[in-house]
């Protein structure tokens, strides 16, 4: 793909922000203010922009946690935000270890089935119980993404290393 094709591809799919590479908390500090501004320029409903920003932060921090685990293997990730007339979409793609795939899949499938009031309860319960074993975060990140987004989809792609793809839609 030529450089200009890449540029046109991003424009054609409404992607107005995209970061790809090694993601750290330092990088996130550097880009989060810009993301906040860009989202607020497009949309003035502050409840909606905070949801978009919240999903972006959780997705970025997921990549950071996976990258930390895989630093020796050069774990990198991509996080992108797009906008169309329907609303916003936040996408994250990162390499992951295959041994975590089944439990992650089960966890996310469960969250996809839950209604907002159940997600709210699950979030509170997770806060009380503390992080699940083997979780680097509080284990709340995916529940937060499910709560703040209108819907989300995920996929695992072998290319050839295993990539985890998470896509969340935030609509008014």
């Amino acid at each position: 793909m030529d450089s200009h094709d890449f540029h046109k591809l991003l424009l054609s799919r409404g992607t107005f922000f995209c970061y790809s590479g090694l993601l750290s908390e330092e990088v996130l500090s550097a880009i989060s203010g810009i993301v906040r501004e860009q989202v607020s320029d497009i949309e003035h409903d502050s409840d909606l922009t905070t949801r978009v920003f919240g999903v972006f932060i959780e997705q970025a921090q997921n990549i950071i946690r996976y990258s930390e685990e895989r630093l020796a293997e050069g774990g990198i990730g991509t996080v992108a935000i797009g906008h169309s007339k329907e609303g916003f979409v936040v996408e994250a793609i990162n390499p992951m270890n295959a041994d975590k795939m089944l439990s992650l899949k089960g966890n996310l499938e469960e969250l996809q089935k839950m209604e907002s009031k159940d997600l709210r309860k699950a979030y509170k319960q997770r806060l009380r119980d503390g992080p699940p074993e083997g979780s680097k975060g509080a284990g709340l990140g995916f529940i937060e993404i499910a709560r703040k987004s209108s819907k989300f989809e995920f996929d695992f792609v072998e290319s050839p290393e295993l990539l985890f793809v998470l896509k969340a839609w935030i609509v008014p």
Binding site: T50, F53, G54, I57, E58, Q61, Y123, L127, G130, G137, A138, L140, G141, I143, E144
Partner: peptide
């Protein structure tokens, strides 16, 4: 105005 899931704890 906003807090993330790590801050919720």
């Amino acid at each position: 105005r906003y807090f993330n899931s790590s801050s919720a704890k």
